[in-house]
Structures are given as C-alpha cells and as structure tokens.
Design a protein around this nucleic acid. Structure first.
Length: 283
DNA sequence: ATGTGTTCCTGTCCGC
DNA sequence: TGCGGACAGGAACACA
C-alpha cells in the first residue's frame, strides 16, 4: 500500500478541497471494504463540515464538525481521486462511477473525492473525535517515525527482546507506525544493516544511525510526492517520483548503487514479504 | 508473549 | 492469445 509518504501526499492533496468545506453528498456503492462500512455512513457525513485532515501512521483522519472523525486506510491499492468543479480543466462531464469506485464524497462547490480500491484491503470507519486515538485500529500503533518519541533509546528498548530479523521488526506497526516494505528496505540499505540480522543484535550506535536515516528517507519521499508504483496516484492525479530514487527496492539483480561496492541487489522473502538488499555492503 | 503463515481481493506480468 | 502461477505498497487473525 501506500506507506506513510504516500498517505501524507494524499492528505496534502485532499486538504485544499476538503478542509473548511461542507460535505454535500455521499454515495456508497458497496457495503464493505476490508470491513463493513460504518452504519449510516452517508447520513452521518452529509452536512458535516470538514474541520481538519490529519494523518496517523497510514491512516487519514478527517475531523468533522459533527464531533465524529472519519478514519481512512488505503490498504494496498486504495486511491483517493479528485474530480469535479475546480479540479483540472475538463471535468464538465461527470461521473460514470468507475470500476472499484466504492465511496464518492461530494463537497459543497462541486469537488468530488472518490475512494477507489481494487483489492479492497482498505478501510473506513467513523468514531467520536474525542478519544479517536483509542479506536481499535489506532490504539496499538507505535510512535510516528518522524516524531520525537522515535529515537535511539526507544528503538533499542523495543528491539532488545526481539528474536525476529530487523526487517520484520520494522514492519511491525506497533513498534513504529507508518513504515512499509519499500521504506524499510531503503532505510536498511542506507544504514548498511543486513535485513536478516536479528533485531536484538544491532549495536546501539548503528541503531542511533538508523533513526535519522529512516527520517531522511521518509522526508525525501514526502518531498517527492511519494512513490508511484502500479496504480498508486496522488490525490491530484499526478505521479509521485520517489520510485526513481529506489536504491534496492524492486531492483533484484541490479548492481549495488553504492560506489565501489560491486555487489548485486538480492531479493529474499522474510515473513512472506520480499526484501531487497545488498549482501555485500549490508552487514 | 512473540513468532510465522494464512487470508482477504483484484490486477498484471511472465513463461509455456 | 490463452492459461496458470507468482507477485503486489497491508495487517488482522489463528495458531505454534
């Protein structure tokens, strides 16, 4: 799915068309995504003003004037597409609902936000804004990797008892929330850490170096508008371009990009997911 | 309590 | 071209 940088990019794309605006109409084209959609979702959204769009890990949180918050998760293939009045130049003709257009939110003024998700691993829910951080989907999430709580001390403390490989540990959203397969692979490459290394057996100094590496990779990816693989798009329909900066992800067989290394990028499977790394310079 | 494997679903790509 | 299998940015769940 969209990982943290892609979700943040989508949030930034949606903010100008949703924040401060009233939801005029909601069309629900199927009753469920990964989970059933919330009861009476269309009615509860209609007429509410969007106060603020926030992000927590890979969730977009849409705070409403009704006192409720709409939680949105894009799963693997979810997209938020913008169309309608004021979006682009050639949208006079509306809306045959496209394949996998599951929820359409129309804002006052005519902008349309369409949640499209072929695989339907995405999710939406509505909950009271007060205490939304205790929502069952959010309450076990670890710290934001770009936040102050994520530092060397924290990371060392959480990893010291883990028998699993560091790659697998970093994908655990209860440890740190927002990383996914791409950015874990890229971060471990930059930090020179072997993804197979047991998490508990990484020297403190190397963990200390890993923290800013993760922050840098995420910040660069956000700056680039995320990565556009397969069907992922920014909300404005533009493509992100961080995929051109991948050093190992999806580059099996390519020469290691580290100058002078001479190794070859390898693909292995860990906990059922592909890992890309250079066995020569990641130790 | 951690660890891994399975599962949800559709689309695409690659080899025969 | 058609068909089968592998694989895809996630993560809840069941089980060792």
């Amino acid at each position: 799915m969209p990982e943290l940088p892609e979700v943040e990019t989508v949030r930034r794309g949606l903010a100008p068309v949703m924040e401060g605006k009233v939801i005029a109409r909601v069309t629900v084209n199927r009753p469920d995504l990964r989970f059933p959609l919330p009861e009476r979702m269309a009615e509860r959204l209609t007429g509410a003003r969007v106060m603020q769009l926030r992000r927590r890990a890979k969730y977009i949180l849409c705070d409403l004037s009704s006192g409720e918050t709409l939680l949105i998760h894009l799963g693997m293939s979810g997209r938020m597409l913008l169309s309608g009045a004021g979006i682009g130049r050639f949208h006079h003709a509306p809306p045959l609902p496209g394949r996998h257009d599951h929820v359409v939110i129309e804002m006052e003024g005519g902008a349309r936000v369409t949640f499209n998700d072929a695989r339907r691993f995405g999710a939406m829910d509505l909950a009271a804004t007060a205490g939304v951080e205790d929502h069952w989907l959010l309450r076990r999430l670890g710290p934001e990797p770009l936040g102050n709580a994520f530092d060397e001390r924290y990371l060392a403390g959480r990893l010291k008892a883990r028998a699993s490989a560091v790659k697998t540990a970093l994908l655990d959203q209860t440890l740190v929330a927002g990383l996914g397969n791409i950015y874990v692979c890229e971060s471990l490459f930059r930090a020179g850490i072997d993804p197979r290394r047991p998490a508990a057996r990484i020297a403190a100094a190397r963990l200390g170096a890993l923290v800013p590496v993760i922050r840098d990779v995420l910040a660069e990816a956000i700056e680039a508008g995320g990565s556009s693989l397969r069907d992922h798009r920014r909300a404005d329909g533009e493509l992100g371009y961080f995929q051109h900066r991948f050093q190992v992800y999806d580059r099996e067989g390519a020469p290691c990009p580290r100058p002078g290394c001479g190794g070859t990028v390898r693909r292995i499977v860990q906990a059922g997911r592909s890992t890309f790394f250079c066995p020569r310079c990641q130790r």
